[in-house]
């Protein structure tokens, strides 16, 4: 009841023929740009989007105790039966694990116990990491639809795909409800459902914290025009660790337990859906210095900040 009351939905009309609806979900500011003059429709779409975002957050957040993720992460080695939506995401996670040859792994979250990316130089010792690696690896769990069995001590975290998935889900809902062009932007991960009536897309300033040589002065954000499809960004220049004069980003290699070296500060990818763009951006980050080469091979538009 407390949280329900606090879920604000803001709506404002802009001069160039669209409504902007804002709310907060998934620890991010969420925004919808809806090309319509119909306030009722805009409000309706805003509510649907908010409810769907909160539904997904509620269902897949690893910070709640009343959802399937909590059940799975506290199953003590017993099999947990999951319903279709969770099963779909697990299938997808398995696919991404195989596609990335083990680099994308939803079980790697336990490594976070060793690594704190707060900018200080605290580096865990190798023994701690080796110990934690016993609980990391998709190959160590059993996924036989619809039963998931984790070893005691293992955990899964769908945070790596949850927000992008929510953006696509909301986009799908919007398309079922309206023919208007809608831009769905959840903290920089976004989808545009179709071109605007003018044929133009939406101007999006992607937040790319670009730092100069001293690492202090953020430069201007990049403006992108998006007409249709998804855009997602991986990486955060403010979360890093320094060791032996080397700078490690916060993306961890689930095989070694160490941060990926020479990873870009951030990678932004445009693709057919936000989920796909997000996976490509994450896989590029995991490639470290080969990020650009990887993205070139995929023939997708991308923006890398190093």
């Amino acid at each position: 009841m407390v949280t329900a009351t606090a879920q604000t939905l803001q709506l404002e009309q802009h001069e160039n023929g669209y409504f902007c609806s804002r709310f907060h979900a998934m620890a991010s500011p969420c925004e919808l740009l809806i090309e319509t003059a119909d306030e009722q429709l805009a409000r309706h779409l805003g509510r649907l989007a908010r409810d769907e975002a909160l539904r997904i957050e509620h269902k897949f957040s690893r910070y709640r105790k009343d959802n399937i993720i909590y059940q799975i992460n506290h199953s003590h080695g017993k099999a947990v039966a999951v319903e279709d939506e969770t099963a779909g995401l697990l299938d997808y996670a398995k696919f991404c694990y195989e596609l990335s040859e083990g680099m994308f792994d939803i079980t790697s979250g336990v490594l976070g116990k060793a690594w704190r990316f707060d900018g200080r130089t605290a580096v865990p010792d190798e023994a701690t990491i080796r110990q934690l690696l016993n609980y990391v690896g998709w190959d160590k769990l059993r996924w036989i639809h619809p039963h998931l069995t984790l070893r005691e001590g293992m955990q899964i975290d769908l945070g790596g795909i949850g927000k992008e998935y929510a953006v696509d889900r909301v986009a799908d809902l919007m398309q079922q409800q309206t023919d208007c062009s809608v831009l769905i932007n959840f903290g920089g991960d976004l989808v545009c459902t179709k071109a605007r009536q003018s044929g133009q897309g939406w101007q999006v300033g992607i937040e790319q914290p670009v730092y100069d040589q001293t690492g202090q002065q953020p430069a201007a954000n990049t403006l992108i025009e998006i007409t249709q499809g998804g855009l997602a960004t991986s990486g955060d220049a403010r979360r890093h660790i320094n060791r032996d004069g080397k700078r490690y980003g916060h993306i961890l290699n689930p095989k070694s337990g160490w941060p990926v070296s020479d990873a870009p500060c951030s990678v932004t990818v445009a693709a057919a859906s936000c989920t796909e763009a997000g996976i490509l951006a994450t896989l590029a980050m995991l490639r470290g210095e080969e990020a650009e080469a990887f993205l070139d091979a995929q023939a997708v538009p991308y923006w890398v900040v190093r």
Binding site: D84, E85, G88, F95, C96, L99, S273, E290, F294
Partner: peptide, 23 residues
């Protein structure tokens, strides 16, 4: 690097389509 995009697009479509009814 291998091109993986076609596979990824297909898998993502499966993910997003399979749950549409539930939503």
């Amino acid at each position: 690097p291998k091109p993986i995009r076609r596979l990824l697009t297909a898998a993502t479509s499966t993910l997003l389509a399979s749950t549409a009814q539930q939503v």
